[in-house]
Each structure stands twice: as structure tokens, then as C-alpha cells.
Design a protein around this nucleic acid. Structure first.
Length: 581
DNA sequence: GCCGTTTTCGGCCCGACTGTTTTCAGTCG
């Protein structure tokens, strides 16, 4: 994805928030947000869009936004937005992320008290000035202060390993309640977003209040945010909020659907229902002018009634899934059970904590048929990378383990650094002996964009490379993707038949799901890899599968769904055609 | 600002909860 595209999207979204604060028509604000979403789904950047004229046929982009994109493509600026920025202090944008503060209240704080930053807001509350304002009171002030405090301590979103821990804790707790009926996680966690802001739990019960009581007394609750008969919210230690809603049994499917989202998918579904003369809300799907909902035993029944095939939660981002469901063209998504082999994990030969034998046994015990051990290459001195002699010794050891663990199979692999000039980290003799070469950028991350793009592309053009590891290089909540033209990298990988990794480490989840469909369209295959440094980390492939599902992938798109025999044949054929070996 | 089989104006999803109110606005999802 080009820098220019990302930068434009950020600008449009910022514009939407600024307009909300100045009190613009809310639908106009939403049009900017939805416009940004529409552009996000387009390949290429502003210049290409303007040249190809694609904006005219893009839903969500009308005359006004098309002109703004055009202005951006020509000048890199949008005058109207620059003017808006002049009017609104930049610090106010930060306030939007504080729970309980929306554009209206921020506007009052700004206009009445001249508050422009988080720090000034904190000061004003402590001085008791905020509490005096109309529409504000002690509780609001307290809530804002708590929000500011929480922001200082925690990131606003957590990674999936943190969320999974919290989810398991809460579900375990609720299952102990005798009054619990149905129980499901909803929200962005169910949709397999790479990070989540909070957890949503939907349940049924003959005695909702009893369930709520159990919920708000979950061990590890830091604060009870809300405690009502049908909805309660708690803040768990570690800073993750959890919402629980208890609904009637007959409403469960609708509630689960509603609270799974995404907001955009819901809006589109409701719009569709309305067009069909129906009404959809969290209580059910209703015929026109009727208070009695259709019987919807499960979510599938809701989609069916709306003339749609069932849409898996991961796809519910309003990125074309509704159109595909209508036409019966949704892919059959890959599942964890489809994976037959482990690709890309580390051992004591570099920075892993377990030996090759331990890793192989652990993979076998999880039901896998094979493993490709990919320790770091010689340049990765920071990770104890393998010198040529070491990697040869590892191959010998892998042969030995293979004999011992039959029919479980081991392959020779490496995670080779992609050097600054795009070369791989061993000579052709060693590269030729390996079954799988995973190429990875680990150093010189701050290279200029065109230099980085050329570096990665040169590695992709090397016939010895099999897989491009963690293609964007991001670390969630910690490090942005490195500067590179992902459009070009994806096209090059597709053209040279290089497999894209879906790195399952909860800090990475890279390739980003938003780029997976683009890579798929470019003809890429994928490998869902744990990149684990111990036996426990092998289980992380479940996160990678979630991300792959989010990218609409089927089992056939992923190389490690092959059986051990098929995988061996694929490796042999590939080496022969690419390396002549 | 976008959109259109209710189409060029007038809609744009909607209900729960909270805190402030004394009948409701703002926020959230």
C-alpha cells in the first residue's frame, strides 16, 4: 500500500473527526469516514485512481470526495481540510479516545473552558471547573479522569494473547453459574481482528440478574463500569473491558449477530432488511409493521431470511461479503483442522528454547504430520544465527530425528535474513540443499521506501526463496510496518511464485488481513506459520488461521494444508523447476 | 457528502445506559 494512500486515508478520517467537533452535519462526517473505507479497499494510490477514473464507479465516493482525492493526487494537500485544521486545536482529536467523551462534550469543553489538550482537561477537572458545566457533573468528571488515567497506563487495544486469556477467564467463570444458558463471545474477537479493544459476551438465562452478579464478581475485576439487569461492563486487571449482555433465548441469534458486528456489516445488513420491508435489530428480524419477530434459531436463519448465504464472522467487515453471499460466491474458509504441517519455527540451533526433537514431538502431539524447522541465518548474530557448518549439522540431526519419529516428517529449512542489498544469507550450495527458505527482513528497518522495496523485490526474484516472512514487518502496538511499496512487493511475489507468510505470532499477524485478498488476487499462495520459539508457541497458528479467514482464504490457498506426501512432492518439484536440483 | 424501483430532495440504523436532568442529550456499540 502506498504511503500516499495511507496518508490520504488518515487525512479523511481526521477530517471526519474535526467536522464532528465543529458541529458539522453528522451524516456529512460519516460520509468522509465511509469514503475513507471505500478507498481503503481500492488497490493502488490516489494518482492511479484519478488516472483510471475508477472513483466514478466506487460506492461511497461522490463528486465532492472525488474532487478531494484529485486535489490530493495533484498537490498532496486538501485546502478545505487544512483550513479546518486551522480552526480546531490538534489536541482535541486525542480527547475522542477517552470513554465518555464524544464530539459534543469536547466542543463544550473547548468553547466554554478553552481546553485544547488532555493535560488541560485533567487540570480543569482537578480544579473543579468541568463539573460546573451544564451537562457535566461529578460522575462525568470522575469517569473522564479515570479514562485519562487508564490511557496513561495501557494501550487502548490489546493483542490476541491478552484478549484470549481474559476471554477464557470470563467464560470459565460464567459457565460455573447454574443460571447460564447459551454463551458466546461476539465482537471483534469473534471476527478475529488482530487486536481488540474489549470483549463482548452474549448469553441467555432464566435468571439474568444471577448471571450478572456472577459476572461482576469475576476474580480480577478492577472496576465495575456498569451493572444492569441486561447489560453489565467490567474492567479486568490488565485494562481490558468486558461487556456482558443477557438476552431471551429467542433473541440469542439476533443479539449474537448484532454484537459481532462489524458496525459496517450491521449497517449494511439492516439496510438490506429495510429494503426488503423487514427490520433487523439486536432483538430479532421483524416483518414489516410487526412486533413479532421471525423465529431465527441461529444466525444462519437470519442470513437465509435476508436472501444470503451464511457469512462467517471473520468476513463481516462490509468488504464485499454481502454481495458475495447474495451470489452464493463466498469461499469455504480454511479451518485450524485443515493445517497438516508446521512451517517456520525456531530451536536451540538459534534463539529457540527447545531442541529440534522437542519441537518435532510437540508438533506431532498436536496432530501435525510434518515440521519445517527454520532457524535464523548467519547474519542474525543477535539471534545466534547458524554458520554454514552449524546448519549442515542441523540437517544431519533432522535426518536422525526423522528416522526416529516415522511416519512424522521433517524438512530442512531456514529463516534467512534478507541482507541490505536484497541478497540471501548463504551461498548457493547451502540454499540448494534446503527444502524451504523463508526470507525475512530483520535489520535496517528504517531504510527509505524505494530502497526497501527494491531490497525485498530482489530477494523475491531469487529462485532459492520459498516464503516471504512477516511481509510488512509490523509489530502490533509497538512498531509500524517498514516503509515499502506493498503493492509492488505483492505483485512481485505473485509473479515469482513466492509464498506469502501469514505469521501467527500475536504481535505480528502479518501479512495484514487487508492485504491478503490483494495477494490472493495476485496469484500468491500462503503459509500459516507459528514463528514459535518454544513448543507452546506452536498453538499460535490458531491466530494465523483467524487472520487467513479474515482474508477469505480456503484450504487450497495455503501450502501447509498439504499432506506430508503432497508437501514433499511440492518441495521437490519446486526445487527442480527453480534450481534445477 | 452520498445516494436513488419511495430517485435530484430528503433521508441517512437504532436501542440501552448513564448522568444529568424533571423529560432528555450524549455516548456507545
Amino acid at each position: 500500500m502506498s504511503d500516499s494512500k495511507q496518508s490520504l486515508l488518515r487525512t479523511l478520517r481526521e477530517c471526519a473527526m474535526l467536522m464532528e467537533i465543529v458541529g458539522e452535519n453528522p451524516f456529512r462526517c460519516r460520509a468522509y469516514e465511509e469514503g475513507a473505507r471505500a478507498l481503503e479497499a481500492l488497490e493502488g494510490g490516489p494518482r492511479e485512481w484519478v488516472e483510471s477514473g475508477i472513483l466514478a464507479e466506487t460506492k461511497g465516493i461522490g463528486k465532492g470526495l472525488a474532487e478531494k482525492v484529485d486535489e490530493w493526487a495533484r498537490s498532496g494537500h486538501i485546502v478545505a481540510i487544512d483550513e479546518l485544521r486551522q480552526k480546531v486545536p490538534a489536541g482535541l482529536l486525542e480527547l475522542i479516545s477517552i470513554p465518555g467523551l464524544g464530539p459534543k462534550k469536547i466542543r463544550v469543553l473547548w468553547k466554554e473552558l478553552g481546553i485544547e489538550t488532555l493535560g488541560q482537561l485533567e487540570e480543569a477537572i482537578k480544579a473543579g471547573r468541568v463539573q460546573e458545566l451544564a451537562g457535566f457533573g461529578e460522575k462525568t468528571a470522575e469517569k473522564i479522569l479515570a479514562g485519562i488515567e487508564q490511557r496513561k497506563h495501557y494501550e487502548t487495544r490489546v493483542t490476541l494473547e491478552v484478549a484470549t486469556g481474559a476471554a477464557e477467564l470470563v467464560l470459565e467463570r460464567l459457565r460455573q453459574c447454574p443460571a447460564i444458558g447459551k454463551l458466546e463471545l461476539a465482537g471483534s474477537y469473534r471476527r478475529s481482528r488482530e487486536t481488540v479493544k474489549d470483549l463482548d459476551v452474549i448469553a441467555t438465562s432464566p435468571d439474568p440478574e444471577a448471571v450478572m452478579k456472577v459476572f461482576v464478581t469475576t476474580p480480577g475485576v478492577q472496576r465495575i463500569i456498569a451493572h444492569g439487569p441486561t447489560k453489565s461492563s467490567i474492567l479486568l486487571e490488565g485494562g481490558i473491558p468486558v461487556d456482558l449482555r443477557v438476552v431471551e433465548d429467542s433473541q440469542f441469534a439476533a443479539a449474537l449477530n448484532y454484537f459481532t458486528g462489524s458496525k459496517e456489516h450491521n449497517t449494511a445488513l439492516r439496510g438490506r432488511a429495510k429494503k426488503m420491508g423487514l427490520k433487523l435489530n439486536e432483538y430479532g428480524l421483524f416483518p414489516e409493521e410487526s412486533e413479532t419477530p421471525f423465529k431465527t434459531a441461529d444466525e444462519e436463519a437470519i442470513y437465509k431470511r435476508l436472501g444470503l448465504a451464511y457469512v462467517e464472522p471473520e468476513m463481516r467487515e462490509n468488504n464485499g461479503e454481502i454481495e458475495a453471499a447474495e451470489e452464493g460466491k463466498l469461499p469455504k474458509l480454511i479451518t485450524r483442522e485443515d493445517l497438516r504441517g508446521i512451517v517456520h519455527c525456531h530451536t536451540t540451533y538459534s534463539d529457540g528454547k527447545n531442541t529440534p526433537l522437542e519441537m518435532a514431538k510437540a508438533a506431532r502431539d498436536l496432530g501435525f504430520e510434518y515440521i519445517v524447522i527454520c532457524d535464523h541465518s548467519q547474519s542474525a548474530f543477535y539471534a545466534g544465527g547458524m554458520k554454514p557448518d552449524t546448519i549442515k549439522a542441523q540437517m544431519d540431526e533432522i535426518d536422525e530425528i526423522g528416522k526416529k519419529l516415522k511416519p512424522f516428517k521433517l524438512f530442512y529449512g531456514v529463516e534467512s535474513d534478507i541482507l541490505a542489498d536484497g541478497a540471501l544469507d548463504y551461498d548457493d550450495e547451502i540454499l540448494g540443499r534446503l527444502d524451504i527458505v523463508v526470507g525475512a527482513i530483520h535489520t535496517r528497518l528504517t531504510m527509505a521506501g524505494d530502497e526497501m522495496t527494491a531490497r525485498v523485490c530482489r530477494a523475491l526474484e531469487n529462485p532459492a526463496i520459498t516464503i516471504l516472512a512477516h511481509p510488512t514487518g509490523r509489530l502490533l502496538q509497538r512498531r509500524e510496518p517498514f516503509n515499502a511499496d506493498m503493492d509492488k512487493i505483492i505483485a512481485t511475489a505473485g509473479a515469482h511464485d513466492v509464498v506469502m507468510e501469514i505469521n501467527s505470532h500475536p504481535w505480528r499477524l502479518d501479512l495484514d488481513w487487508r492485504l491478503i485478498r490483494q495477494a490472493h488476487a495476485a496469484g500468491c499462495k500462503f503459509s500459516i506459520d507459528p514463528d514459535s520459539h518454544n513448543t507452546l508457541g506452536l498453538r499460535d497458528v490458531r491466530y494465523g488461521v483467524g487472520i487467513a479467514r479474515k482474508g477469505w482464504l480456503t484450504a487450497g490457498d495455503v501450502i501447509n494444508t498439504k499432506t506430508a506426501k503432497q508437501f514433499a512432492e511440492w518441495v521437490a518439484k519446486r526445487k527442480k523447476s527453480r534450481l534445477g536440483k
